[in-house]
């Protein structure tokens, strides 16, 4: 047995692993008493900072930076909540109770209910359970996250062929990774791709919720978060 040349997929997956952002902390303000507003403010602030990081991360996806600026924007505007959510879900896998928005901000069902987030908590937990059952690994997580971006079904797209090429490249990377690392589960790549509809559906519910929060006007939101929320009207 000889290892042979490093396969193209392995390079893509290892690039995606290297592109994984550093941890971000929620840092809830200790001087402010706990309330639903505090929780939502902390989450919106965290999301705003994560968005900056996600935009930087996207540039490391092979082929993304070659897309037109307009198409890069469209993909990010379409998929940002799916990417944020997938991060929360992956971080939450080892925890039996609670969603790990950040290592310093784990929210359980009681805290979620008090913040008006119980429905979102339960549907996000459904995603956690789905990935837990699949025993998704980090390589699969980073590839699926890039695929969610490439597959955002953005409405205003200039060069659909280049986006299709990006999707094909990432899908191929996932399939080849599975054939090599999980060869005993021939349907695994398909099973992972079949989680994407639930991810989109859940992301859509989260966006709707934050549209309503925004309309109430009680929670301060930073500009980038607002901008991305507005793109999903």
């Amino acid at each position: 047995i000889h290892p042979g040349p490093k396969k193209a997929y392995a390079k893509i997956v290892s690039n995606l692993l290297l592109a994984e952002p550093e941890k971000i902390y929620a840092m809830p303000d200790p001087t402010v008493p706990d309330s639903d507003i505090k929780t939502l403010t902390t989450l919106c602030d965290l999301a705003d900072r994560e968005l900056v990081v996600i935009i930087g991360w996207a540039k490391h996806i092979p082929g993304f930076s070659s897309l037109s600026l307009g198409d890069q924007m469209s993909l990010l505007q379409g998929a940002w909540m799916e990417i944020l959510l997938l991060g929360v879900v992956f971080r939450s896998l080892p925890y039996q109770e609670g969603l790990v928005y950040a290592e310093d901000y784990i929210i359980d069902e009681v805290h979620s209910r008090m913040s008006g987030l119980r429905d979102l908590y339960l549907c996000t937990l459904q995603l956690v359970q789905r990935y837990r059952k699949l025993r998704i690994d980090k390589e699969e997580y980073v590839t699926l996250k890039a695929l969610a971006l490439a597959n955002s079904d953005a409405v205003h797209v200039e060069d659909i062929q280049s986006i299709q090429k990006l999707q094909d490249l990432l899908q191929e990377a996932l399939q080849e990774y599975e054939s090599s690392q999980h060869w005993e589960e021939p349907r695994r790549a398909g099973q992972l791709l079949l989680t994407l509809p639930l991810l989109r559906q859940t992301a859509s519910r989260v966006v709707q919720h934050f549209h309503a929060v925004r309309a109430q006007g009680r929670v301060p939101m930073h500009k980038l978060f607002l901008e991305m929320l507005e793109a999903k009207m």
């Binding site: 968005l51 600026l69 890069q72 980038l224 901008e227």
Partner: peptide
């Protein structure tokens, strides 16, 4: 792009979020 100027700028320049 006018409505999405922070995203536009971050993609072009990589500067931090305009808070």
């Amino acid at each position: 792009t006018e409505r999405h100027k922070i995203l536009h700028r971050l993609l072009q320049e990589g500067s931090p979020s305009d808070i």
